[in-house]
Every structure is written in structure tokens, then in C-alpha cells.
């Protein structure tokens, strides 16, 4: 029986700005089992990044307001622990890698120095040992000539190499959970394939759990066990990966799948775009946030927020309609 290592209940994140309150994440709940890989899919502004950054308190303190019933990681209450305890968890128990490898490394420190940093901060190794561990990680992420690379600076390396270094940095303390926030978006497609393959391989070797955030449904299809689909700050559908792609229930998921070019071996199918644009997070509509763009919309959708329906043990959907029968539930 797998154990739950991460449990998030009713997470709300708001940003206080001059123009008003931005409701970036509303009532998001999910959990993660040990060794599991979960994908969070959605478009820009849907709150996928914010929802994981808030777990680690990496959002600007003075702007972000985080409220939740529970954020629990293993036995630790992430919501209420002191800042210094949070700093202990970051990088050692939970690691996160970001989107833009060109900007994510300190330009005036060598790769070796930055790689040893997590070990030094978390007092897991002394100088020489840290150096050896760093070399080991560089080999693990398949960087050629690791001894030389240790003395390079970030600007001397390409985007793909830098992202491998970031992965090495995130894994050097052997975390239980790795969060990847669109790490391949800025990379070429062949480099992206290499990185994804690397992450799969590392998961096999090290066994850590994974949360992978992306807007690319193709990446998600081949990488994770379970998928959360987010829209305008809420989770609209959650399912095992096969169920999501082959029997999607939520109108947004269905529309999203219909709007992207599909795989090979099919006659050319006309792309079905989703009309309209996502809602303004400063001024969210009453009722369902997708109503304006939905192909199945009914009156009730505009008046009240849809409940979360359980379709089976692993499949949830926040919708008034049963999209398979087009009836209101």
C-alpha cells in the first residue's frame, strides 16, 4: 500500500496588487503517493506554477497571501512551520527546477560551487566529499567531461547543459519529491527529449516522486501516472493518464485535446480552437469559470460553481454536465 507523501487541501493563493486582488489559485486539493509522478497541465495564468511555489513559500512574501486547510508533506505541516525549517526542507527533501535554465544559475559562481551549495547548506558533506558527490551527479545527468565542467561558469554552457546542472543540483541531496516547473519549455525539441528521458531514468534509479508542470499535453502523456488539469486557478479534472486522454470528461479537457494536432496515423482532422479567452483573475465570473467558452454550457453553469464529481476512484471532474450524455447531473 503506497503512502501519501504530499497532501494539499483547499489551497488558496491571492496576490495583493494595486489593481486589486488576483485570485491565482482557488480551493485546490490534491495528494501525491510515494514514488508517483503527477502532471499538472494548463495554460498560462491557470495557477499551475503558483500552486507549487506556494507549497515551498517561494512566492514574494509581501504580495502573496496563502491560505489552506492543510499542506502536509510526510509528517510535516508545511503551512505552519518556521521559515528556517522550511529552508531545511527546500533542496533536501523537496527540490524544484524551473523553466529558464539560462537565467536560473548564478553567473559569477562556477558550476562546481553551485552544485556543492545544497550539500554545504544542508550540512550533508564537507568540502572534499561534496566535490566528489558533485562529480557523481554530473555523471548521473550525463554531462561529458565532468571534471572540466566543475570549473566552468554558466555562460559557457548551453541551455540543455545548464538544465542538466539544475537537475543535478536538485537531486544532490536525494530529495523525496522533485517538482519540475516547465523545465523543457525553453529548450529545443531534441534536447527536451533527452532531458525527459533523463528524468525518467533518474526516477527509476532514485525512486523520488515527481510533480511535472507543463502546458504540453504530449510531454505529460509520456511521463506521468496521473494528471491534474487546471483552469483559471482551479482543478477542473483529475484522472489517471490513460483515462484523461482517452475518456476526458471535463469540457475544457476535451476542448484542449481537440485543439492540438494529434499523433500520426490519422487523417487530417480540423483543429477545433476554444473560442474566447481565459477570465480575468481580478474579476472572476460567478459560476463556472469556463462557462463563457464551453460547448456544453447551460444556465446553471453561469449561476453556480460546479461541484466536484467522482467518476471513479481515480477520476474527478468539476462540472455540472455529464459530457458523455450532455445531460445536467
Amino acid at each position: 500500500m503506497s503512502e501519501t507523501i504530499l497532501s494539499v487541501k483547499n489551497l488558496n493563493v491571492q496576490f495583493i496588487t494595486k489593481r486589486g486582488i488576483i485570485k491565482a489559485v482557488q480551493d485546490v486539493s490534491y495528494s501525491l503517493e510515494k514514488g508517483e509522478a503527477v502532471g499538472i497541465v494548463g495554460e498560462s495564468g491557470c495557477g499551475k506554477s503558483v500552486s507549487v511555489l506556494s507549497l515551498l513559500r517561494l512566492l514574494p512574501e509581501n504580495l502573496a497571501r496563502i491560505k489552506s486547510d492543510e499542506i502536509r508533506f510526510c509528517d510535516t505541516d508545511l503551512l505552519h512551520i518556521a521559515n528556517k525549517d522550511m529552508q531545511n526542507i527546500r533542496g533536501s527533501k523537496i527540490s524544484i527546477i524551473f523553466q529558464d535554465p539560462m537565467a536560473s544559475l548564478n553567473p559569477v559562481l562556477t558550476i562546481g560551487r553551485q552544485l556543492r551549495e545544497p550539500l554545504i547548506i544542508h550540512r550533508m558533506a564537507k568540502a572534499k566529499e561534496a566535490n566528489n558527490k558533485a562529480l557523481e551527479l554530473l555523471r548521473m545527468v550525463q554531462i561529458p567531461d565532468p571534471e572540466e565542467r566543475m570549473n566552468n561558469y554558466p555562460y559557457e554552457m548551453s541551455g540543455g547543459m545548464r538544465q542538466r546542472v539544475m537537475i543535478a543540483m536538485s537531486l544532490i541531496c536525494n530529495p523525496e519529491l522533485l517538482i519540475a516547473d516547465e523545465p523543457t519549455t525553453a529548450l529545443d525539441v531534441t534536447v527536451q527529449a533527452q532531458i525527459i528521458d533523463l528524468v525518467k531514468e533518474l526516477r527509476r534509479r532514485l525512486g523520488m516522486s515527481l510533480i511535472w508542470i507543463s502546458h504540453d499535453l504530449g510531454i505529460i502523456a509520456g511521463l506521468v501516472n496521473r494528471v491534474l488539469v487546471m483552469y483559471a486557478g482551479t482543478i477542473v479534472e483529475e484522472a489517471l493518464v490513460d483515462d484523461l486522454f482517452y475518456t476526458p470528461r471535463h469540457p475544457y479537457t476535451r476542448a484542449l485535446l481537440a485543439s492540438i494536432p494529434q499523433a500520426e496515423g490519422q487523417l487530417k482532422r480540423k483543429l477545433q480552437p476554444i473560442r474566447g479567452s481565459p477570465p480575468d483573475l481580478l474579476n472572476l465570473p460567478r459560476g463556472c469559470l469556463f462557462a463563457e467558452r464551453c460547448n456544453y454550457v447551460k444556465d446553471v453553469c453561469r449561476k453556480e460553481k460546479p461541484p466536484i464529481r467522482r467518476i471513479n476512484d481515480n477520476h474527478r471532474c468539476a462540472c455540472w454536465m455529464d459530457t458523455t450524455t450532455s445531460e445536467v447531473l
Binding site: 504530449g218 510531454i219 502523456a221 509520456g222
Partner: peptide, 20 residues
């Protein structure tokens, strides 16, 4: 990457190694 889990699981891939 294809948005089709079964295809993703079963395809054999030979993407190039190394950097451009």
C-alpha cells in the same frame, strides 16, 4: 512527444544525443 499515452509508452525513439 505525442498526446497519446499508449503511443508514448510503446514507441521506440532514437533522438539524437549530444548538443547542437
Amino acid at each position: 512527444p505525442y498526446p497519446n499515452p499508449k503511443v508514448e509508452r510503446t514507441r521506440t525513439r532514437h533522438f539524437p544525443s549530444g548538443e547542437i
